[in-house]
């Protein structure tokens, strides 16, 4: 039996936060107003003393959380392997940086931490004892274009199978299960002139026509910049598959510590443009997953974020058949 909590990541409010329209406190207030209790925070985005938590910030943070009835369920860490100009961080340095992140997550009260794949499976195995000491489950994010069956994700899976720790695992991002083109493609299609080229680009992706060959064809068709960008993105971080990789998700589920409910655009009728929530959520519900799905809005709809997130949560509740707690 699964036990699913819904939450949001404060990252949803990136545009508002950047412009000073939402402070951290406003983000926390909005979380409560949206009817959820759990949130994720991306450290490199919102922590004033990143990558640390000062005592002063910690007490202010706790006060705000209490005021709005919300708790930090997850800490979004970055694996900045390339943070030095002269060389990559060594494995030891990456481990040390991750231990610091775990400590920071713990100071914020988070029980889960999102890590990134530059932290190799080998180093992840070394993370386990620290994760256990601090009581923070660390999960590698599975982000589009990776899926649970990507070779690198399989390596983590095998590492986890060998290690036996319940404190290292995965954070699948729903974007990894996209089956339809992104909203940007729909927007490019509003221009009638783009129709033929876009249809070809989608056809090429669906039929695994090699990227270089498809690109050449598009260049010959004389397509504009907008179409070219859609093409590159649908072969990059905004790709889509003919079927969501739910079989592999099922296999790794015992190691899933948290989910990112990625979305780019929510229609009024509670339908996400590119990601088949109606297939993914029931699969999670049928599993033994216990944890949180945080809504992660990654569109750029100035002024519409709150409404987008509201619709996303409404869609999730509708599919899962749960009411507002």
């Amino acid at each position: 039996m699964s036990k699913i909590d819904l939450g949001i990541t404060l990252y949803c409010f990136t545009a508002e936060y950047y412009r000073g329209e939402y402070s951290l406190e406003d983000c926390l207030r909005a979380t409560g107003e949206l009817g959820v209790k759990q949130f994720e925070i991306v450290g490199s985005q919102m922590l004033p003393a990143y990558p640390f938590v000062t005592d002063k910030f910690r007490s202010e943070f706790n006060e705000m959380c209490e005021k709005y009835g919300v708790t930090c369920v997850s800490y979004g860490a970055n694996m900045d392997r390339g943070m030095r100009a002269d060389r990559n961080l060594t494995e030891d340095e990456m481990l040390k940086s991750t231990i610091n992140d775990i400590k920071t997550a713990n100071r914020l009260g988070a029980k889960v931490m999102r890590a990134q794949y530059l932290l190799s499976p080998k180093v992840m195995a070394r993370v386990a004892p620290y994760a256990e000491e601090f009581g923070v489950k660390v999960g590698i994010e599975i982000h589009n274009p990776e899926t649970p069956s990507s070779p690198v994700m399989q390596e983590y899976f095998e590492t986890y199978e060998r290690g036996g720790s319940k404190y290292i695992g995965f954070v699948p991002d729903f974007g990894a299960f996209a089956t339809r083109p992104n909203i940007k493609v729909a927007r490019a299609l509003e221009n009638e002139e783009n129709k033929e080229a876009i249809e070809y680009a989608v056809h090429a992706r669906r039929n695994n026509i090699p990227r270089n060959k498809a690109r050449e064809t598009l260049i010959q068709m004389g397509v504009n910049q907008e179409v070219m960008q859609c093409f590159e993105e649908m072969n990059g971080f905004l790709t889509f598959y003919n079927e969501p990789d739910l079989e592999s998700l099922k296999r790794i589920m015992p190691y899933v510590v948290h989910f990112h409910g990625k979305f780019h655009y929510m229609h009024e009728d509670l339908y996400e443009e590119s990601i088949p929530y109606e297939e993914i959520l029931p699969a999670i519900q049928k599993s033994d997953f216990e944890g949180c799905i945080v809504s992660e809005f990654e569109g750029n709809e100035p002024g519409k974020t709150y409404e987008m997130v509201r619709r996303h949560l409404a869609m999730e509740r509708k599919i899962l058949g749960i009411g507002i707690k």
């Binding site: 490199s44 985005q45 943070m83």
Partner: peptide, 11 residues
Amino acid sequence: YYRGLFLSCID
């Protein structure tokens, strides 16, 4: 950008 960076990330 959407997040902060160390000055060493200025190329």
